[in-house]
């Protein structure tokens, strides 16, 4: 087995495009997913049960079924709902819906981690429900759930590879097509693995640093 690294340099523009698209999918999908997750958690916890029940169902379905199947339903099944999506839109939307379910569970746990006494104190001072969420609960819980959010964000970056199956032209897809035309699978796939690996290590290290930086206060002395 010999390595022909020229394959990589020859196809550099293609690979770069794929990489940029992967990052785009990851960033946009995560951002929308975070928004969905926060909205779902707030609606589940602070509204009535008729609104909460379908949301609980959504979370259970997204967590209980494979991401690949979800993508197939959205992309191939979408036209039957009148949703004729491009692979990219279906992929980013699918990633956001998938991540949103997990993010909502994290946010939910975060809301519940704030001691009820603190909410009572805020209510006693006449602070409104929304202001309590924004000024009392969110700032504290974000510190607590940051590791979980970072972890999920990292997991989502790996899920972007699955979008290649519905023909989104991201990094994995580009590498596979280069491999199938040149038969240089070893070079291209190993390159791909190393890129993901390095990327994840960097993101994880950044997340660790962020975690250390926030949280000037500690929660230990509070009950």
């Amino acid at each position: 087995m010999t390595f022909n690294l020229a394959i990589l340099t020859d196809n550099w523009p293609l690979l770069l495009d794929g990489m940029l698209l992967t990052i785009f999918i990851w960033v946009v999908g995560t951002a929308i997913g975070l928004a969905i997750g926060l909205a779902v958690a707030v609606l589940q916890l602070f509204t009535n049960r008729w609104l909460a029940a379908p949301l609980t169902f959504y979370v259970a379905v997204m967590r209980g079924t494979p991401f690949l199947i979800q993508l197939f339903v959205i992309y191939y099944g979408g036209p039957f709902f009148g949703l004729d999506l491009t692979p990219l839109v279906a992929g980013v939307g699918g990633l956001a819906l998938y991540g949103g379910a997990y993010f909502s569970e994290i946010f939910r746990a975060g809301f519940l981690s704030v001691p009820p006494g603190q909410i009572e104190a805020a209510r006693m001072m006449g602070i409104s429900r929304l202001a309590i969420i924004r000024h009392v609960q969110l700032p504290q819980m974000l510190v607590i759930i940051l590791p979980a959010l970072a972890n999920m964000t990292v997991l989502l970056s790996k899920e972007t590879a699955v979008l290649s199956v519905i023909t989104v032209n991201e990094m994995t897809s580009v590498v596979q097509s280069i491999g199938s035309t040149t038969f240089a699978f070893a070079e291209t796939l190993l390159f791909l693995a190393v890129v993901y690996w390095a990327f994840l290590e960097i993101v994880t290290a950044l997340a660790r640093r962020l975690e250390k930086r926030v949280g000037r206060f500690t929660l230990r002395n509070q009950h």
Binding site: P115, E120, A121, A122, V136, P139, Q140, V143, L219, Q222
Partner: peptide, 9 residues
């Protein structure tokens, strides 16, 4: 409150 319930942040 007995447990103070100060906001730690």
């Amino acid at each position: 409150f007995q447990q103070f319930n100060l906001w730690p942040h």
